[in-house]
Nucleic acid binder design. Structure first.
Lengths: 203, 203
DNA sequence: CATCTATTGGACTAATTAGTCCAAACTGTT
DNA sequence: AACAGTTTGGACTAATTAGTCCAATAGATG
């Protein structure tokens, strides 16, 4: 049978494979990651790949989860308490700073996978949706808290605000990636911030 | 030599190949489109592919351009005169309606290619950037006109507003695609609209 | 130690891939 | 009809791909 490692050694092997696969997907895209690449980078044998993963798709889906973990991890504390304007500003600034550092390369590691996999593999699409949901939940929770403390107008809908903000983030990252210009994300986030502050309900 | 067809017949062949390639990229992703797929769908021989295109990458880049044409074309008149609130609302409504019709599938044909190609092929990245720029230019032009006619506040920056709006569109489409829920785009566009109306300058 | 399971090596298959090349067929021009 | 350039057919190469299978080894457990 495949899948869950029973020993510590097995767990380490699985981890090694998964880590290498995630790197390769980030470097060469999901379609560009080959099992031979993974083997070359880890020294693992074919048997090991198929011992810990059903098949290629299973590995890719695991990569999505591990990539989500990494994205949330890199945002660290910032994302944990998004319940004040100052915290949100710090978070936005960090997102932009990260893109400046990377010179606009790479886009969103999760969002990029959407275009690559959403229409090709239903399981992958769900995994990506889950990843984005985990992300969005942090913001939504923060906004709920802010509303409770009267920092948001009374008829504001934290869920919708969180969604609109995520859209600005993803779109801003996409434009940043394609144009190699972090200012694109800055502009999108400034607009997202204004929308959060927005006082009047529309539509 | 390759490239430009000299006769009408040649032009038709090139067009047939390009059309099939664009369909296949839309269906199976850029990496999933194989030259044999194109051959099968068009009945073209290998020589024909390499007669009209340098290589696979050249074909993909041509697909990007033709896809951009199609995206702008489908938005037809709506996109030509985005110089009133009513026109913008009609445009947004049409974008959402289109996603409802497609049940949230597919995302943005251009934006999806970004995640697939931006980091793998510099030429493709440029082509995508050009495509998005052509799109954004329509909105920017409309906003410039609105500002001239006093429909936008005096210190509004049409270029930045257009960029922020494009980010909302792309992000909204990405969320719609991943979640199979056109309401995601609706929410993003409502926020974009509010931002366009925005009176106060921030930052 | 004996045994059972987890882990690993690696040969092998079968299919698909992009790209090259040469000769044939077609088309318009003189 | 003869010629020149364009277009086409398709065999061929060389590389890469995911996946299967069997036997060997390592490690834990009684």
């Amino acid at each position: 049978m495949t899948r869950a490692p029973a020993t510590e050694k097995g767990r380490a092997t699985r981890e090694r494979i998964l880590q290498a696969a995630a790197e390769l997907v980030a470097e060469k895209g999901a379609a560009g990651m080959s099992l031979d690449d993974v083997r070359a980078r880890t020294g693992a044998s074919r048997s090991q790949l198929y011992h810990y993963f059903e098949d290629r798709n299973d590995l890719v889906r695991a990569v999505i989860d591990v990539t989500t973990d990494a994205v949330l991890d890199v945002q660290g504390d910032l994302i944990g308490r998004l319940d004040s304007w100052a915290a949100i500003d710090r978070w936005f600034d960090a997102l932009v700073a990260f893109q400046v550092e990377r010179q606009g390369r790479g886009g969103c590691p999760i969002g990029s996978l959407a275009g690559q996999l959403a229409e090709q593999d239903a399981g992958a699409r769900i995994a990506i949706a889950n990843g984005l949901e985990r992300w969005e939940a942090h913001l939504r929770d923060g906004l709920v808290g802010m509303k409770a403390r009267g920092k948001l107008r009374k008829d504001a809908d934290p869920a919708e605000l969180a969604t609109a903000t995520m859209a600005s983030i993803q779109g801003g990252l996409l434009l940043t990636q394609v144009r190699r210009d972090p200012a694109q994300l800055r502009i999108a986030l400034d607009a997202a911030r204004a929308n959060l502050h927005q006082k009047g309900k529309r539509r």
